[in-house]
């Protein structure tokens, strides 16, 4: 479902003496349907960079990232938008929403853009918010004022509302208490069971041992120093 090969990444800082920073070289990995692969490696090794490239957020210098038949590195914006809408889900660490939009609508939005009726989307959003223990009295409020853990759970509800065939998870359990952590791990297990291909970053070792089928150490993709 996710096939990465020969992937490299450089940043060129035009306003800082055109410094060229090579951050990744010859990265390769694959994730099959129903499988959860965990990215590991020290902080700064490039786990988030790789995730962002898979989501089409960062451009690749070389190589390919094929998701459900579409090569992200060569796709047009329109193709990436369509892929993100129906096929490729992403739970980031941060919640980025229009202020003022109620939490229930924030969570329901991915279904709304897919054309599901408002009522159905809201009902599904309500069920997920209940599942991740966001009290109903908060649903009509914007999540921008919520605590870190609450925002993260809103993000998770939003990311799991549609059964994406491919799913990227960036620290989905980072600021959660034990009970909510179990709920999220349950959601991940259920997504695997329905056949989702999952690529994730988990700093929580117990969590990753529980849901990941195997690990890829991104340190292997660090470019060799030229000097």
């Amino acid at each position: 479902m996710i096939e990465i090969s020969g992937l490299s990444k450089t940043f060129t800082l035009h306003n800082q003496g055109s410094a060229v920073i090579r951050v990744m070289a010859d990265a390769a990995l694959s994730v099959a349907p129903g499988e959860c692969v965990g990215l590991i490696g020290a902080s700064g090794a490039g786990k988030s960079t790789l995730m962002r490239m898979v989501y089409g957020n960062y451009l690749a210098a070389t190589g390919s990232i094929v998701i459900a038949g579409t090569d992200i590195t060569k796709a047009t914006p329109r193709e990436i938008i369509a892929l993100r809408r129906a096929t490729l889900g992403y739970v980031s660490q941060f919640l980025r929403v229009v202020p003022r939009v109620p939490t229930l609508e924030v969570v329901a939005e991915p279904l709304r853009v897919l054309g599901h009726p408002a009522e159905e989307a809201r009902a599904r959003a309500a069920a997920l918010l209940r599942q991740v223990n966001i009290p109903e009295r908060l649903w009509s409020l914007s999540p921008t004022t919520f605590s870190g853990g609450e925002q993260q759970r809103v993000n998770i509800a939003r990311g799991f509302i549609h059964p994406y065939p491919a799913l990227l998870l960036d620290e989905p359990t980072a600021s959660l208490d034990a009970a909510n952590r179990e709920v999220v791990l349950g959601l991940i297990a259920a997504a695997k069971a329905r056949g989702a291909a999952i690529l994730g970053i988990f700093h929580d070792e117990a969590a990753r041992a529980q849901v990941c089928d195997r690990f890829v150490d991104v340190t292997a993709f660090t470019p060799q120093a030229a000097a």
Binding site: H14, G56, L59
Partner: peptide, 20 residues
């Protein structure tokens, strides 16, 4: 390009300046 890609990984010097 895609909005978040242009803002998060700008390629042109001018865009990098705008974003930063």
């Amino acid at each position: 390009g895609l909005t978040d890609q242009v803002l998060d990984d700008p390629q042109h010097g001018y865009t990098q300046l705008l974003v930063s």
